[in-house]
Design a protein around this nucleic acid. Structure first.
Lengths: 97, 97
DNA sequence: GGGGATTTGTACGTATGTATC
DNA sequence: TGATACATACGTACAAATCCC
């Protein structure tokens, strides 16, 4: 049973047996970079590769790369300083820990 | 004096006399809709116009409208249910109050 | 159940602006 | 000055979930 704001309360699983639902490309890219951050490839307060560089590495359109970076930003893994670059957040700002 | 995470601490104004910096179109659109929400044009837990409708109303590209909606979402004015639409948040979730 | 319309989500590619170095 | 880097804005296409007959 769950509630959807403004629509009422419903009974039953929200999406059947949790459909596998494909993972968007931008999330796959984000996950890969996050893995590298956790592995220590990019240190806290240090720049990750530029969006341009990531475009080439993943061979994806600018918008897709921007979405990936935005996703990591929302999760707290990185922060961006305009016209400078995107930095790895302090570990205490990382999710689940 | 101010600090930029990862770069150090600096003295002086960050951008001279705080340049007026133009307001992006997506924020202008968001501000206009937020004004209408505050004015009661769209009630809490009710749908705001679809992105398609907003495109026509503001005569802007889809991406710009999506950014405007995303902006309102980040600020807490609305929430989106995929494939259903974007709803006005409960007033207690609105910013500054 | 079927089919179509609606609506948001994802992804592409391009151009230009603006701040930083 | 020039190169780099992110921000904004445009337009297009298709996917996927929902809703309404």
């Amino acid at each position: 049973m769950y509630t959807e704001q403004g629509r009422g309360t419903f009974v039953g699983p929200k999406s059947a047996p949790q459909s596998p639902r494909r993972v968007p490309v931008y999330q796959q890219i984000a996950n890969e970079i996050i893995g590298e951050i956790k592995a220590g490839a990019y240190a806290p307060n240090r720049l990750i590769p530029s969006e341009k560089t990531l475009e080439q590495r993943f061979d994806r359109a600018p918008g897709t790369i921007r979405q990936a970076v935005a996703h990591m930003r929302e999760l707290g893994w990185v922060f961006t300083v305009p016209q400078k670059g995107t930095y790895v957040s302090k570990p205490e700002d990382w999710p689940e820990g």
